[in-house]
Design a protein around this nucleic acid. Structure first.
Length: 643
DNA sequence: GTAGGGTTAG
């Protein structure tokens, strides 16, 4: 195609949509030979050409035209004195289509400043890029320019600024700017509501929404309702969610797929699976997010078969639904299924990501599958997946739960970034391995670093004290938890503390604590008290604890056996027999104990007195031998310790 | 031509 006449050139370049890429390249060559984009020709041609390349976002070409525009802009002998080509490039860069290119916005703005004056279109793009990059310092400098150049009354610019502040600074700052706006439009309100929701302050978001409704000049649109519904979900306020759902349906708010997705999520969070399902069924053109949200919905209600069915019905699956289903299996303690799903995922050639690895490690921790866990660690290294805090924490947790505490410590020490959860995982690991002193040291170190412990951290230190019989320290932690760290004592804290008091013979104090607990003691609490009574020969209290255990779960055979054993140990044969008779009368059967072991990456399950293996006899001989050796060693230690 | 929104993870 011959080049157009010079008078037509600008019009051709400015056409929307722009000419195809091959045509643009021809025009570029033409302009070069005609000397129209070299100094001292007017920069209009260069500007239009850059803008045309930047707007040419045909997905088939990927970021190529955009990169071409950037190169062209950088190579011009005289840089354009208009913001237009820069704006076009900023627009294309900040559309997030090519996430990796967003950082290029900043140097581009710097070169714009050298030759031209930013205008009302420059700032929305640039602030969006700053928000996307979470670059607070740069964004604040840009805000300085906004005010100096007098754009503080441009509603587009200020909306983008409110968004930037909400993402990178704080809601207080975003709110201050919002309050100062002379004119606000719907986007201003939506930005503020969305900001509060993203920061997890749904109460404020709804407050803003009510104020907007009172004001009455602007009608909420689907974006408003997405924010508000998400807020209802966070608040777990089903009543309000339903009312606002009604509002959406009767006020002609566009029911986009995105809004329907949030509605589903709100119902799930508020515990109404049926309504979530009915919204899902009514979605026309379900997206991957719709399907994934429904999978998550079922997993949250423990309905793993339904989750799997939705997963299978899904037309196309990226890593998200795989991860969601896998996380569901992990949460429902079906770790074997989680690992099985991972193998399917590999067969389906879906690339696992960081979150897949997090799920896999949790599954390994549950199973004690060290070989598989090490394979995951190796996989992370080999594929250079970024070792995020969460992933690192899970690695530490996996190694310690799978029995290799040394490796857990080694990984912990090498982590580039650690947070309170990482420290908590390490400290709980040490506690579970009986290394109480170190666990407590880690706790102190973590406090020195200014990290905030949570409820789990205290379970760690309390169980450390429990293992080591450190009553005084245990009492101290138990009290600090509330007085200094303002945390709530949970069932697990009480059971730890009662176990500690009981083991060390403070039975009265343990009983007092059981009686003053703010919640109904569970089987673990009574079990700990029972164990202590048996250990210290307090039959009366032991009987009471055992009766409570029977009440809590009459079908659990274990407690009858333990109670009978306690009587035998105390020389009360008759009472022991009575318990056994009672057990027979009640028809309580012993449930066979079940355990599992990982061998060469395969997890095997087996039950008590399992004779299914062909070498059963040899295995039991070997086990007998090991038990004897342990007994012998324990005796020797006893002799040395007491003698 | 510019700004705002949802899903996966200990």
């Amino acid at each position: 195609m011959p080049p157009p006449a010079p008078s037509r050139l600008l019009a051709v370049l400015s056409a929307r949509p722009p000419p195809p890429l091959c045509r643009l390249l021809q025009l570029h060559a033409h302009l070069l030979t005609a000397g129209l984009i070299s100094s001292p020709s007017p920069p209009a041609f260069a500007s239009s050409l850059v803008a045309a390349f930047a707007h040419s976002d045909d997905p088939r070409h990927g970021p190529r035209p955009l990169l071409h525009a950037l190169a062209l802009l950088a190579s011009l002998p005289s840089p354009p004195d208009s913001a237009r080509p820069y704006n076009a490039a900023l627009r294309a860069l900040s559309l997030y289509a090519h996430r990796g290119l967003v950082p290029r916005c900043l140097p581009l703005y710097r070169s714009l400043l050298l030759s031209a004056r930013p205008d009302h279109l420059t700032f929305p793009f640039l602030l969006k890029a700053c928000a996307c990059l979470q670059d607070r310092r740069y964004g604040e400098a840009v805000l300085g320019h906004v005010f100096r150049l007098g754009f503080h009354a441009d509603v587009f610019v200020v909306n983008a600024a409110v968004h930037f502040l909400a993402v990178c600074a704080s809601m207080v700052e975003a709110r201050r700017l919002f309050d100062q706006m002379p004119v606000r439009d719907l986007v201003s309100w939506n930005t503020l509501i969305g900001g509060y929701v993203r920061r997890g302050v749904p109460g404020e978001a709804l407050e803003v929404f009510w104020r907007m409704a009172e004001d009455g000049t602007l009608a909420p649109d689907e974006v408003t309702m997405i924010g508000v519904m998400s807020g209802c979900g966070q608040l777990r306020d089903l009543e309000l969610g339903r009312r606002l759902h009604g509002y959406v349906e009767s006020n002609g708010v566009r029911c986009t797929v995105r809004l329907m997705n949030v509605l589903m999520d709100m119902y799930v969070k508020c515990g109404d699976l049926e309504r979530a399902k009915s919204v899902f069924e009514r979605i026309d053109g379900k997206t991957a997010v719709s399907w994934t949200t429904m999978i998550v919905a079922y997993t949250k209600f423990g309905l793993m078969d339904d989750a799997r069915r939705v997963f299978d019905e899904m037309p196309e699956r990226d890593a998200f639904p795989w991860n969601a289903l896998m996380a569901g299996y992990v949460q429902c303690k079906q770790a074997k299924e989680a690992l099985g799903l991972f193998h399917e995922m590999q067969e389906a050639k879906v690339r696992p990501d960081e979150i897949t690895m997090v799920n896999l490690l949790s599954a390994c921790s549950q199973l004690g599958a060290l070989d598989m866990g090490m394979w995951v660690h190796h996989y992370i290294d080999r594929h250079r997946l970024s070792l995020s805090v969460t992933l690192g924490t899970n690695l530490v947790d996996m190694y310690s739960k799978c029995g290799n505490i040394e490796k857990a410590i080694h990984v912990f020490k090498g982590l580039p970034e650690k947070n309170a959860l990482t420290w908590t995982a390490m400290l709980c690991g040490l506690a579970n391995h009986g290394r109480a002193d170190e666990a407590i040291q880690y706790f102190q170190r973590m406090i020195e670093l200014g990290l905030q412990p949570d409820e789990i951290t205290f379970i760690g230190v309390l169980s450390a004290c429990c293992h080591a019989g450190l009553v005084k320290q245990g009492r101290e932690f138990f009290s600090l938890l509330v007085s200094k760290y303002h945390l709530e004592r949970k069932m697990k804290h009480y059971s730890c503390m009662i176990d500690l008091l009981g083991r060390t013979g403070h039975l009265d104090e343990a009983e007092r604590l059981v009686n003053t607990m703010p919640m109904e003691p569970d089987a673990v609490v009574w079990g700990a008290l029972f164990f202590a009574c048996r250990m210290h020969g307090n039959i009366t209290l032991g009987e009471r604890a055992a009766m409570k255990l029977v009440e809590l779960d009459p079908s659990d055979s274990g407690i009858y056996v333990l109670l009978a054993n306690m009587y035998v140990e105390a020389g009360m044969k008759k009472k022991a027999d009575k318990v056994r008779v009672m057990m027979r009368h009640l028809g309580v059967e012993k449930v066979p104990g079940c355990s599992c072991i990982e061998l060469n990456g395969v997890v095997h399950e087996f039950i008590v007195k399992d004779k299914s293996h062909m070498d059963t006899d040899a295995i039991h001989d070997c086990l007998h031998e090991i038990t004897q050796q342990i007994r012998h060693t324990a005796n020797m230690i006893d002799i040395y310790a007491t003698g």
